[in-house]
């Protein structure tokens, strides 16, 4: 593949004891594109995500992130919070991880932690309540408000995140990730548990994030309607290795992909094939 990759995964290996969860996986995600990582359950998709976002340290291989300004960051050398902070990679979780006891607005404020820490002079200026801090806080609230509006949660801004319906929580988690102003947004099954209407809304949201913010998106998804409709590029994994990649149409017609899904899970296989008809 040629083009302008933002993320290059190069022969990524991840072992847990004797089990090889990811084996020599290589793929790229293009800048300002939506790349989908699909595969049957247990294919190792979330493990790849955890390697990219620093929750696991890869056993081998390289993960490079090329920023717009030309910097290239070796993600496998950074750990946990630094990937989000320095490499500007944000993520969501398969089983939503909001701060349930904090309001939707507070969730988005926490996401702006690093910017606000600088503005508060590492707390000192903020403690004194200097105008520069107040200005920064006001801007942060504005950004949060804008994102709440984008995901249609403005009227729930002051409700506890844990009190929101499931679909709203999914969107709030995406908004929270976007509040870190990421270069790469990694979404782990963003459509899981959503109904058809919500899932359609999600598609629009993700497309608008790509088009308006210019954020590159990497997503794991089981919902083939989401994958087929919004992905620019699809990577298919099975048993820790890449078995196919290409445009959604190309992947859908690939016999290896169909075989993998048929072998793994009947329902998913039907979903893959039905999405093509």
């Amino acid at each position: 593949m040629s083009g302008d990759p933002i993320l290059t995964v190069d022969r990524l290996m991840m072992r847990f004891g004797g089990i090889i969860a990811v084996n020599e996986l290589s793929f790229t995600a293009e800048r300002r594109k939506i790349t989908a990582l699909i595969g049957p359950n247990g294919a190792g998709k979330t493990t790849v995500f955890n390697c990219i976002t620093g929750f696991y340290r890869p056993s081998g291989g390289a993960i490079r992130l090329a920023h717009d300004d030309g910097r290239t960051i070796q993600l496998e050398r950074l750990n946990d919070f630094r990937i989000a902070k320095q490499a500007k990679v944000a993520r969501t979780f398969q089983n939503i991880r909001l701060f349930p006891g904090m309001t939707a607005l507070e969730n988005l404020m926490v996401a702006q932690h690093n910017a606000l820490m600088r503005a508060s002079g590492l707390t000192v200026l903020g403690l004194l309540g200097l105008p520069s801090w107040r200005e920064a806080e006001r801007r942060a609230i504005d950004l949060a408000r804008a994102w709440l509006d984008r995901v249609g949660l403005l009227d729930r801004a002051d409700d506890a995140a844990g009190n929101l319906p499931y679909g709203d929580q999914r969107r709030l988690e995406i908004a929270r990730a976007m509040c870190t102003e990421p270069a790469l947004l990694c979404l782990d099954e963003p459509a899981a548990g959503l109904n058809a209407r919500e899932s359609g809304g999600l598609n629009e949201l993700l497309l608008s994030i790509r088009n308006e913010q210019g954020t590159s998106i990497l997503l794991i998804e089981h919902d083939m309607s989401v994958v087929m409709e919004i992905s620019d590029h699809v990577v298919v994994m099975d048993y820790g290795v890449k078995i196919a990649e290409g445009t959604p149409q190309a992947v859908r017609d690939d016999p290896k992909v169909i075989a993998a899904y048929l072998g793994a899970d009947e329902e998913e296989a039907i979903a893959v094939m039905e999405s093509g008809t």
Binding site: F81, A84, G101, V110
Partner: peptide, 27 residues
């Protein structure tokens, strides 16, 4: 005062979900 500053919010966020904190770039 601290609760309304980023450090205080980070404390509470830490109590709520440490993994999510790390994913948001909080040390």
């Amino acid at each position: 005062r601290l609760r309304r500053l980023p450090i205080g919010r980070a404390w509470e966020a830490l109590r709520e979900d440490e993994v999510a904190c790390r994913a948001l770039g909080i040390n």
